[in-house]
Design a protein around this nucleic acid. Structure first.
Lengths: 106, 106
DNA sequence: ACATTAGTGAAGCCTCCACTTCAGTATCAG
DNA sequence: CTGATACTGAAGTGGAGGCTTCACTAATGT
């Protein structure tokens, strides 16, 4: 893996675009082909492809081509770095509560 | 409050910029004035102001001016919608595990 | 009072990036 | 074989947005 901070950069940048978030939301319910993915979106198939490439490069989406159709699905741990960043943004006392919860909970 | 989906849009867009994320990271350790905020960043004071306005408009940062200095701090619940979106991106079975955890844990 | 500090407002520049068009390549169906 | 489907690649366009400069106001310090 490369520089973790620039990886986070890419994730945030990727999710900054509404269309790409729409793709992620769409894939939440299960794998989809590129064409099906493009249907409800108001963009070209080519545009969807470009978005998919970006989402892939930062580990948010996994795609696999079988025959002439490419199947797209969410990468399981893709949002983890984002989640970690958010947790790190809590105030110190909140963090302390978190740690307490981790000790007591799971 | 306005349309919630466009609110989420603004949050994601705001965090899509590295400089704005740097501001958020800087404010994690406590309130800071605009000048102090700008010091380590390689941009003008004016640029920082513009970023702050954006961060404010989507409820991520709270600022208050006393005298000639404006104090900036993180808005406590600001990242909540973002967090919710991430949670909603889990697969159905993962969600079910989450609910189970919620019932057993806290 | 005067200089300095801290922040504002307006206007313009310029780069990046989302999107399109068009042309091309496999794959599948009849 | 023929046509349709599903994607891929290259190249170009337009607009949004991040940044700067310059001019200005208000608070503070000596």
């Amino acid at each position: 893996m490369s520089d973790p901070s620039s990886e986070l950069d890419r994730v945030f940048h990727a999710l900054g675009d509404p269309t790409r978030r729409a793709i992620m939301e769409r894939l939440t319910d299960g794998p989809l082909s590129v064409s099906r993915l493009a249907e409800p979106l108001n963009v070209t198939l080519t545009a969807v492809m470009q978005h998919l490439q970006i989402l892939q490069e930062c580990g948010l989406v996994y795609t696999e081509k079988t025959g002439r159709v490419r199947s797209c699905r969410l990468e399981p741990g893709g949002l983890a770095p984002l989640e970690k960043w958010i947790r790190d943004r809590r105030s110190p006392w909140e963090k302390r509560l978190d740690r307490l919860g981790e000790l007591l909970g799971p």
